[in-house]
Each structure stands twice: as C-alpha cells, then as structure tokens.
C-alpha cells in the first residue's frame, strides 16, 4: 500500500473541542462518585451504572484524546488482536475459578457461610443480592465482620457503605 505522505501534524488539526470532552469526563466521574455516596441505590444498579460510565469515559479518551476517531483503518488491525486476547483471558479463567466447577474448601468461604448463618440480618444487601442471583454468584456480596464477637467495635454494616 502506498499513501500520500501528508507530513506530520495533520491529525492534530481536527476541530475537537477538547475542553468539552474534558468537562464531559469530569461530569461522568462526578456521577460515579455520587453513585457510591448516595444511599439506597440497589447494588446491582450501582455496578452496572459505574461500569457503563467507565466505558463511556474510556471511549471519550480513546476517540478524542487519543485521536482514534481520526486515524486510518490501521487502528482496527492493530487493536483487534489485543482486544480479542484481552477479552479471551478472563473468559478462559471463568470456568475454573468463578463458576466453581471444582469443589474447593476455602477457609474464608467456610467462615463467611458461618457468619451469614449467625448474622443474616446484618447483611441485608447481601441477601438482597442473593435473591437477584439465585444460582448463587455471591461475588459482590458483602463480607461480614468475621466471628461472633467484636462486632460492636467495628460494625461491618453494609448500610454504612450504601
């Protein structure tokens, strides 16, 4: 392939209002922080919201700050393999670790189940979460303050977080 050599700096002269991109990024960050600070927001919605915001922010940075919007088709060839491999790795790990295909006796899980059995009330949002995932993907569930005692000193209340 041969291209017209237009010299350097061509890509720098697109009429992008960088300040507008910057303000959009700031507003999106603010919403993320608010989503964490505001009380009463269901956990699942919070997760979906903040991760969508991150993706939107990442797109803003890549398209405008990194000029990908204005680059030639080489960007697809260059970024496709790394994207596929990057997505492939977690998917490849998923069956072993995340879906518990293997039965494992992790001591923390034993403690966790015990704590949940003793203090089901103190982990309201964890239970709420469990009902949303009947298959029992408790990944985002709140870890309790382990043990039967000492809770008075450092309350593990998930309510304090949300």
């Amino acid at each position: 392939m041969a291209y017209r050599d237009t010299g350097h700096g061509e890509h720098a002269h697109h009429d992008v209002k960088y300040i507008a991109v910057f303000i959009a990024l700031c507003i999106l960050t603010g919403i993320s922080v608010l989503a964490d600070v505001v009380e009463g927001l269901p956990y699942a919605i919070k997760v979906v919201l903040v991760l969508s915001i991150s993706t939107a922010k990442a797109l803003c940075v890549m398209l405008f700050f990194m000029h990908l919007k204005f680059e030639g088709a080489w960007k697809y060839i260059l970024l496709a393999p790394t994207t596929i491999l990057a997505i492939g790795l977690p998917i490849a790990l998923m069956p072993d670790v995340a879906t518990r295909y293997y039965i494992s006796a992790v001591p923390q899980d034993v403690d966790y189940e015990e704590a949940m059995a003793h203090h089901p009330d103190s982990h309201g949002s964890a239970n709420e979460h469990d009902t949303e995932h009947p298959e029992g993907q408790p990944g985002e569930a709140h870890a309790p303050h382990a043990g039967e005692s000492g809770n008075a000193d450092t309350p593990p209340t998930p309510e304090a977080k949300e």
Binding site: P90, L93, M94, V97, A98, T99, R100, V106, Q108, D109, Y112, E113, A126, Q137, P138, G139, E140, A141, H142, A143, P144, T154, P155, P156, T157, P158, A160, K161
Partner: peptide, 14 residues
C-alpha cells in the same frame, strides 16, 4: 474472576 469466585468480599470502607 477471583471476586466472582469468592463468596464474600470486603467492600465496607470502614
């Protein structure tokens, strides 16, 4: 993957 594979996770800022 590790987080989904754990039954719990410490998230309370306290």
């Amino acid at each position: 993957v590790l987080r989904i594979g754990s039954k719990g996770w410490p998230i309370s800022p306290e």
